[in-house]
Design a protein around this nucleic acid. Structure first.
Length: 599
DNA sequence: GGTGCCTGCCC
DNA sequence: ATTCTGC
DNA sequence: GCAGAATGGGCAGGCACC
């Protein structure tokens, strides 16, 4: 297949928001692809080169792609960057500067397998000079690309194909193509994907032998299963109602999700939520798992959390981040940041697949199979049947250093639904509940150009607190979540009177905004907690040298504080108090004080 | 050898 | 991670 | 309610550059 044909399909997909129409376009595309190319087309359409768990990375994104486009077109890099900021999409900008498709003739037209091979080449190049090599490959592709091809080539590289299609839509289309109208077949295809996490493999099998060829793609030790995910709720009574009046609650630990595969011979592989192999970072867990799980093979899932070696208290998420992805000084990291795995589910028990069993049975089996040790423990759990009991357990969880609780359905259909976010699991955190949550009034000092559907307007804003002692404004977060289309539309008008050409002298931040404002407009934001920051400057040096404070998971509450001037915003001192009132010294999370700045 | 930018992946 | 939008 | 696409803080590694 010509890459141009794939690009035309993307163009058609992008032009509609109707899901059924998208599916039809994909079905037509699947029908037009040669069987042996289908896998490649599906990987590319997912924004991947290989199944996610293989971790094949391009190592090229916005910055290098810009360089490649500049070279391919002879345009100035800075000029292209400005245009891309304005349009919110380097792909669109590329389409404009690449010009009409007449630039290339049929003889050199890009074929999908060739594009794929070139992209793989980019991914595989490493070492000194590799950035140059990657740019050259991309540049060469772009020189041969029509404007439409260039648009999607660049979007692929940027990781935002933005055509309204992801895994679920592709699965729908595969089902519609290979087994039209056959609901069980649709289910079977999705199940095979959830077990293998590899659309290319699914496509290959389907092309070779149709749906029956998927039959033997079951649970395999060493091949990660797509994680089951949870929905959210902001009320325990709502959760109980949905779950039929009774539910199991578990501590929701703030750490890394880990899927552990323990082979018959006791060898262990660990996978992250996005199925990256993370075993090398946690040799302590691997060793502890081999002894904690004597009956093998087995697959269990848990949360990897930093723990205080002396007091056994749970430590902040930031600490376990030091171990994620680490390749150097593994021994030292292991010593400095001990972790424990709080196991909460079992998918394979002594060779027997149990992921299809209801949750209560899996939990019972988990408790029977696990021989806990210092590193491997059971997640705290309790069955509750009233809001009172649920609230008590939630309070215990928070006092014990957890983020909140995870509610799990006890009902008949409560199997482990790989890959699914649904109401079988519901997370509940204190921060979800308005009135109990942290809220901060921040001053807008800068803004950033939006991308994609926020192209042509601001996509995020830089917020600061007021340092009343020095009469300065210190950044503590960007915020882009929580704005609906109308709010986003309004912002330029609200900000217009305060625009300045460069960063005001009384604004302190480590970030370079696309637009700057005199501190004037105040917004209410919420977040989960305050962290020590290398880039934000709120209270810099007051807790730790060189470190400011930042808000984790910031979002706009929808409340403009037009009643406040910039000096009435939350102050640096108040932010520091909030930070101190979090869990330091006392058990993590055991703060009776909530983050409530003055009204 | 140090530093800063970029990228990808955790949450 | 959270939030918003169109189907 | 689902699926997709916006957006956040912050970490480690890799590479370019000095």
């Amino acid at each position: 297949m010509k890459y141009a044909e794939l690009a035309r399909a993307y163009e058609a997909l992008e032009a509609t928001a109707k899901r059924l129409e998208m599916r039809s376009i994909l079905v037509a595309l699947i029908g037009a692809v040669k069987g042996e190319e289908l896998g490649i087309v599906l990987y590319l359409s997912q924004g991947l080169l290989r199944p996610e768990y293989e971790g094949v990375e391009l190592g090229v994104a916005g910055s290098l792609a810009l360089k490649a486009l500049a070279r391919a077109t002879g345009e100035e890099e800075e000029r292209l960057a400005r245009r891309a900021r304005a349009s919110g999409d380097l792909g669109t900008t590329a389409a404009e500067v690449l010009g009409p498709p007449s630039r290339r003739d049929e003889a050199t037209a890009l074929e999908v397998p060739e594009v794929y091979a070139r992209l793989l080449e980019i991914a595989h190049s490493s070492g000194a000079g590799s950035q140059e090599a990657k740019i050259v490959i991309l540049e060469t592709l772009l020189r041969r690309a029509s404007s439409l091809e260039g648009k999607y080539l660049l979007r692929f590289v940027l990781g935002t194909l933005r055509v309204g299609v992801r895994e679920m839509t592709i699965l729908d289309a595969l089902a519609e193509h290979f087994a039209p109208g056959d609901k069980p077949a649709r289910h079977e295809i999705e199940a095979a994907f959830n077990m293998t996490s590899d659309l290319g493999l699914i496509a290959e099998r389907l092309a070779a032998g149709g749906v029956p060829a998927l039959a033997r793609l079951g649970l395999t030790v060493g091949r990660p299963v797509r994680s089951m995910l949870a929905e959210r709720s902001n009320s325990l009574s709502d959760i109980l109602l949905r779950m039929g009046g009774r539910a199991a609650l578990e501590y929701k630990y703030d750490g890394l999700r880990v899927q552990a595969h323990i082979a018959r011979d006791g060898s262990v592989r660990l996978f992250s939520r996005r199925l990256e192999e993370i075993g090398p970072q946690f040799p302590d867990l691997i060793e502890a798992l081999a002894s904690a799980i004597p009956h093998r093979p087995a697959i269990v899932e848990g949360e990897c959390v930093p723990v205080d070696p002396l007091t056994d208290e749970l430590r902040p998420f930031q600490e376990v981040s030091h171990r994620r992805g680490r390749k150097r000084d593994l021994d030292r990291a292991q010593e400095e940041t001990p972790v424990a795995l709080f196991v909460f589910d079992v998918l394979l028990d002594a060779g027997e697949p149990v992921y299809g069993r209801p949750y209560p049975e899996r939990r019972t089996r988990l408790e029977a199979l696990l021989v806990p040790n210092e590193r491997i423990r059971l997640a705290e759990s309790r069955v509750v049947a009233s809001v009172d009991a649920a609230t008590r357990f939630f309070d215990e969880a928070v006092a014990g250093g957890a983020e909140g609780v995870m509610a799990k359905s006890l009902q008949e259909g409560s199997s482990y639904q790989a890959g699914a976010r649904g109401y079988w699991w519901i997370k509940y955190k204190r921060e979800y509940v308005t009135g109990l949550a942290d809220s901060i009034d921040g001053v807008i000092v800068g803004a950033f150009s939006g991308r994609g559907r926020r192209g042509g307007r601001f996509g995020a804003f830089l917020l600061a607190v007021y340092n009343s002692r020095q009469d300065r404004y210190e950044s503590f977060c960007k915020v882009g979540s929580g704005f609906d289309d109308q709010a986003l539309e309004e912002m330029p008008h609200r900000l217009h009177p305060h625009v300045v050409g460069e960063r005001p002298a009384n604004v302190d931040t480590g970030l370079n905004a696309d637009a700057w404002f005199r501190p004037a407009l105040v917004l209410e934001v919420r977040g989960a907690e305050l962290t020590l920051s290398p880039i934000h400057r709120a209270g810099i040096g007051r807790v730790k040298p060189e470190a400011g404070l930042a808000l984790r998971f910031p979002r706009f509450t929808g409340r403009y504080r037009d009643d406040k001037g910039p000096t009435d915003a939350t102050t640096t001192d108040e932010l520091l108090e909030l930070y101190e009132s979090q869990s330091h010294g006392t058990p993590h999370g055991a703060h009776g004080v909530r983050l409530r700045p003055k009204a």
